[in-house]
Design a protein around this nucleic acid. Structure first.
Lengths: 167, 167
DNA sequence: ATCTTACCCATAAAATCCCGTAAAATCCCC
DNA sequence: GGGGATTTTACGGGATTTTATGGGTAAGAT
């Protein structure tokens, strides 16, 4: 299972005028290891209103997973739509490279779908990590198992930095 | 599994007056690697109203896939028509070469079958990628698992560039 | 001669890289 | 264990490079 690393922890990061933002330092090391370079895979989350990120190797895992499902299906004489499965998983997924200082440009379509405005809350959830608009996350906490106090803390912190002109 | 690379991500690209269009940059690198040159294999999709593309090496993979299906079938005492499967997969397939700037000429018959007009939406689905008329894709999303918001974003983007004369 | 295809150049927009800085985290030595 | 020194981080801004796409033109094919 590719290194068996689990993403954890949380941090907030700002999007600048050029649409760039930096990957929090605590996630970077593993991205580099798991990607054999500075690559971040970013896509939309299947259920939540946020984005998901992980290193390249996870993408390869996803591919072999689909392959296994297909093989199991044909062995049973059933049909399995690989393309449908692939489309679901891969179509929104982009390979982004971040620079030596950890920054990457957030593609506009992902920014829009993830409802990301001025600040992004990163938080690890095991095999992947999520990118939320902190406010969106607060508004939907009921179904998303995240400690609300944590989000509020980061939000307050972000508000202070930008001198109150939040959002 | 041929390098275990997965095509992912999406982008829109315009067809010019000469029938040329450029392969989005993020797909190009892998096409070159997987084709040992600037070759793109393009054909019609078996189920969806779009085209499929991939690098040359994928053709070999497709053969072994058919083989696996055949083996699975006889293991269960069923019959499997290899020729029919091959015909379905390969007969529409063309090897096209793209130039240094990533452009190729879209053969008229594929253009017609793929219903491609002014703009083409490329999106990776793992082992291959699809080429859609964005409008067609929007009209059929029910059976095709692609994030509708993504398509809408690209369509809007394309409309802006061409100054509203979308089509 | 005409149509098609493969190059070549041009350009605007977008992405990438590089440098600078200030705040925060880490180290280190007494 | 405190307090300054050093390193890492987050972010701004400019410069260089890559893309996407228009348009021209020479080489083949019909």
């Amino acid at each position: 299972m590719s290194g068996a690393y689990a993403y954890s922890g949380s941090a907030i990061s700002a999007i600048d005028d050029k649409g760039r933002l930096s990957v929090p330092a605590f996630l970077r090391k593993n991205l580099v290891e798991s990607s054999d370079g500075r690559t971040l895979c970013l896509g939309t989350h299947e259920k939540w209103d946020c984005l998901v990120g992980f290193g390249l190797s996870r993408k390869a895992d996803m591919l072999t997973e689909i392959d296994k499902q297909w093989e199991a299906a044909i062995a049973r004489g059933e049909s399995f739509d690989k393309d449908a499965a692939g489309a679901r998983k891969f179509s929104s997924l982009q390979d982004l490279s971040f620079d030596a200082s950890g920054r990457f440009i957030l593609p506009p379509q992902l920014r829009e779908i993830g409802q990301l405005e001025s600040h992004v809350l990163f938080h690890g959830i095991g095999t992947t990590f999520c990118l939320w608009n902190p406010q969106t996350l607060l508004d939907t906490t009921d179904d998303v198992p995240v400690d609300r106090r944590l989000v509020e803390h980061h939000l307050k912190e972000a508000g202070e930095k930008s001198g109150g002109k939040s959002k």
